[in-house]
Nucleic acid binder design. Structure first.
Lengths: 235, 235
DNA sequence: GCCCTGTATGACAGTATTATGACAATTGGA
DNA sequence: TCCAATTGTCATAATACTGTCATACAGGGC
């Protein structure tokens, strides 16, 4: 029996994007494009989680959450545009369980949904994620995400935000090929519609910086001809 | 089996904030928005710790603590607004184990809760409080939190309260990056909704004062472009 | 080898982010 | 109350980062 998720956003584009990624994970999706419908749906059906846009015409996310909370405790993940972040606290006040700032990466949303569902299903078991320090270690490359620091052969490499994000994303899924479109969506986030070749340039700059310190580290970023790039561990 | 904490405060905003941070640490949370419910809950269930607001309608924290203490010795951390501090002594009289003044930093609360739980679990073993001395020592920088004094290359640096708090906060989590929002929440406390750039200005002033005495000490405060700041130890 | 397609590179202009300095508001004592 | 220190905000200057494009280069099929 798959878990049911309600997606609420007035932008169809966002709904479809989330839908696609969540269906792929096996969730059953329902969509609503306004707060009123969302509230009705959420009250009459039992969803396991609700992805709720903050800003919507007629009834906004805060109001939906507030009213829903008088009846049910369905987990809510608020979607909020940058700049609306001041509503963040207000969102938590009315009982949102998590917050995602737009534009998000679809993969990130999937991870958060999973986290919420896990949390609400196994309230007994605690994962001490305090100790889960976020460090990726390979022979010639270490990425410490807490410190936001990259070491190639023990030498610090200064990366720009995009270079860092790109490397982190690739390194988190070693040996998996991503095409440029996918990378733009994940690293540049969904609202970026730029030149695919932008990725190439960033890969170039990233390799350049790594290569200066450690050719081996630089070589971990492979070009897959005709497809895209991957972070290769073996060999 | 996770440890159970009861949060008692009439302000929902405060409850949610504490809830969020404590859940993240793996604690199991129960909330109450008034003293009567709190007392009932605390008597019928066994909590490992109670976060108790001092000022509440109907039955205040003092009264709750007093009555609870006739039956149980559950550790109590009192939450008290600035200006209510006169009740502090009275609070300790009725058996509060610790005191936190509002507005607090969420992280601070987590630390105190951990401390209380640690203390109550190892009542047999006494840790020599010499080791608990709150002094942070680095090559070019010493922060003596007992004396509230900062030495850069053995020279005393006069910092304003905010500068001091900022430095202390950063230095307590070396190599970890904090964004401006997080710093505002932790150093400026949860009720501050100001300009994010306020952080920049304080960092500037802090660096200025440190730099005058020890450029090395000043350089420990790193800007992480696109993210925020961190206190860097290595290199 | 030759061509076609895809990738790497280098330069540049535009954009975003941070540092700084000045000022007003606030606070905390004397 | 007034003064001095501290604090928050803002405009501006100084930096750093990005995306795009034109061009050079490389891989693969024939």
């Amino acid at each position: 029996m798959s878990e049911r998720i309600l997606i609420v956003d007035d932008e169809e584009r966002i709904r479809k994007l989330l839908n696609m990624y969540l269906v792929r994970e096996g969730y059953e999706i329902t969509e609503a494009d306004n707060g009123e419908d969302a509230l009705d749906l959420a009250l009459e059906q039992d969803f396991h989680c609700i992805l709720l846009d903050l800003m919507m015409p007629r009834m906004d996310g805060i109001e939906v959450a507030k009213r829903l909370r008088t009846q049910k405790s369905t987990p809510i993940i608020m979607l909020t545009a940058k700049g609306e972040e001041n509503n963040r606290v207000e969102g938590f006040e009315v009982g949102a369980d998590d917050y995602i700032v737009k534009p998000f990466s679809p993969r990130e949303v999937v991870l958060r949904v999973k986290a919420i569902l896990r949390r609400s299903s196994e309230t007994t078991f605690i994962e001490a994620d305090a100790s889960t320090k976020d460090v990726i270690v390979y022979d010639h490359l270490v990425i410490d995400n807490d410190a936001h620091r990259v070491l190639a052969d023990d030498v610090k490499v200064n990366l720009t935000p995009k270079e860092y994000e790109l490397l982190l994303f690739l390194a988190r899924s070693p040996d998996k090929v991503f095409d440029r479109e996918e990378l733009l969506r994940e690293v540049w986030h969904y609202d970026f519609y730029g030149d695919l070749r932008t990725v190439d340039t960033h890969v170039k700059r990233l390799r350049e910086k790594l290569n200066k310190v450690s050719p081996e580290a630089s070589d971990m970023i492979h070009t897959v001809w005709g497809i895209g790039y991957k972070f290769e561990v073996n060999e």
